[in-house]
Write a protein that binds this DNA or RNA. Sequence first.
DNA 1: AATGAATGAGCATTCATTCAT
DNA 2: GATGAATGAATGCTCATTCAT
Lengths: 215, 215, 215, 215
Amino acid sequence: MIPEENQTEQTDPRWQRRKEERPGEILKAALECFAESGFAATKLDEIAKRAGVTKGTLYLYFQSKEDIFKSVVREEIVKNIAHVEEIAADESHSSAEILEQMFKFWAQVFLKTRIGAVPKLILSEGKNFPEISRFYLEEVIQRGFRLLGGVLQRGIDRGEFRPLNIENTVKCIIAPVIFSLLWKHSLESHCDKKLDVESLVQTHFDLILNGLSNK
Amino acid sequence: MIPEENQTEQTDPRWQRRKEERPGEILKAALECFAESGFAATKLDEIAKRAGVTKGTLYLYFQSKEDIFKSVVREEIVKNIAHVEEIAADESHSSAEILEQMFKFWAQVFLKTRIGAVPKLILSEGKNFPEISRFYLEEVIQRGFRLLGGVLQRGIDRGEFRPLNIENTVKCIIAPVIFSLLWKHSLESHCDKKLDVESLVQTHFDLILNGLSNK
Amino acid sequence: MIPEENQTEQTDPRWQRRKEERPGEILKAALECFAESGFAATKLDEIAKRAGVTKGTLYLYFQSKEDIFKSVVREEIVKNIAHVEEIAADESHSSAEILEQMFKFWAQVFLKTRIGAVPKLILSEGKNFPEISRFYLEEVIQRGFRLLGGVLQRGIDRGEFRPLNIENTVKCIIAPVIFSLLWKHSLESHCDKKLDVESLVQTHFDLILNGLSNK
Amino acid sequence: MIPEENQTEQTDPRWQRRKEERPGEILKAALECFAESGFAATKLDEIAKRAGVTKGTLYLYFQSKEDIFKSVVREEIVKNIAHVEEIAADESHSSAEILEQMFKFWAQVFLKTRIGAVPKLILSEGKNFPEISRFYLEEVIQRGFRLLGGVLQRGIDRGEFRPLNIENTVKCIIAPVIFSLLWKHSLESHCDKKLDVESLVQTHFDLILNGLSNK
DNA sequence: AATGAATGAGCATTCATTCAT
DNA sequence: GATGAATGAATGCTCATTCAT
């Protein structure tokens, strides 16, 4: 009301921390709500209720609904990045084995943790939060792509894999994981049969390694 | 090839028509808006503006915002179904050829028409519109899965393909198409390099047919 | 929420008109409320109620509570300016007569119209609305001071008045009018005896012309 | 000369003390805030910050925001009254001299101390705090008016002043002091030239004593 | 005494919906 | 049919107030 709009905003490291202690309960509740209903349809009352606090309390830790949203995504993305980097390129195994490990690890991470909701949010709300999209794209997706691409390249160099367009292949490989994740978060609740991700990943790994053809 | 408004009657009682004349302009504008911003963040003012009418006019043709949303999705889904069914099982070609045709056809349809926005909407808003999700799941996804599964089964039966878990394979095969579509609708605008779907589909087809392995 | 904050704001003529037709009812009601309770304590519900509309309607004509406030003040200030300029310097009378006319005219204007509330608002809310204060200062107060100072100077030049510090004298002359106006708008309602402005102005005119001293 | 905290007891039953020890820091900070922003726009956070305590501490000494406001005003008013009464009717000087002394004394008090903010608050918030207005009116304003009126009456009785409407004259005399005070507290910060009160009072005293006319 | 985290009532603002023209 | 002014319920956000520590 009274013009005093000079917050600095996130200037320096793109996503700095705001407080030492941040109630994880609120972020957890918020992630649930946003993943279920999207940004606009999520009510602060609902987040507060699920976090076991009142609406006013949210504003002790966050500046606005948008800030809560960004914080949730950022928090999860940071974990995401950590996971991506955790998958060190293990030189001692064959490329196929490394690939298989990465698959299984990702399937675990994406499906067993709350992180899986983030890609859905990026898809749904990306147009409304361009910085977040850009950040996610650069820090998670492209980084993951490079990692996977490196493994493929090494496999080709070693003669384990036949030469292929790496960029496209990376997307083909990752797609079923994305698919599973979105399925879990959106459609599965309307479907009587659960998706067996372990089995899907197994099939997928076999498929990309050996192809459909009966040779 | 894309059927416009010439379906004789409501195919499913759940989705009956309300009016004879429905301004396609409104639905077109609405699809754009919903795809861009999601249901809740889309304002009727915006739809009206893009459709070149006033807000009041929307209520001549639709009962509510929700009705507009459902109508948009239904309309597109109906076209979707038509497309899926159009891909007749052509007995005269090899299964691989049929598969390739289906791929290319889908890539065309999903990426070159406005239909591609629907899966994004289903994913984003599914939790808020369960009937739509269920309808889409049954009438489009599972129908498509059965169609593709049939082709695979025939390939296996004919000895063209090696035996594989059909259900999983179908998902692995369709996943990159979904991926492309979501990418186009969400992340591509934040990325400097455009996704070349034709090329991706080509790589994908090669990959699933022949696998990675250098045999 | 979605960053699209690029309104141009009042750039060009400092206070341009927003709409051709502006419901004077709203501004009238708003002036009453703001004058009674100040900016912060005024509720939009109250303004709406007094204007005979609902809260939402206010937003058809104004962008915010602050906008309503500024519009009210601006509107009244514009009238104010008109009044100030209306008092043409009449060359045909003695300076004392012109002075008397100005007094009586101002007393009428300030006390018989709603304009009288503006100075109170400027005083009360000036710190919170610096641009308004500055505008009022330049366009009304200093302009009025110059006008009055001109009359005094002419009186001195003609030998009608004795030489005096014009700047100070102007303030001494105008002060009782301001006093009356503030009294009317703030304290009179708590006092059993009404202030007789006509009589006060008469005494004042006599006093400044002839002084207290019994010569 | 300005009495601090040494009044023995509540002079008026309407304004009794609540606590023995009252942190002057809080009241000082509160007066600043209220004078700057008005009652409603002042935040307890701000008062607490300026007083160097936390918000909770305010409630150790005051029952509510309104209580703080009333306490501030009352505190200052009490000082005000003391000042007014301090100006004893000095019989040994001419009425003009007494008048001049009063003027100068008031100018000092109002402008050099924080008391000057009170009249502004009374004007701004009077409608929202009627008891305060009434109290101020009776205990300060009318008392001051009677005092000044007495001096005038004595001057007339002694033949020093010519007969005038005392009630009106009092207001005319006091008005420029009020004007100066409000100017200092509201408009001066938006104006490049500072108001020289000493000089204004000098001119004013000369003016009311001798008038404008060149006799 | 002093704190500051938590509260929740209150208010500005938005926007789907209605209806007189 | 089409309009757009008006509505009012819904909701994000503020801030005076409380209370366990």
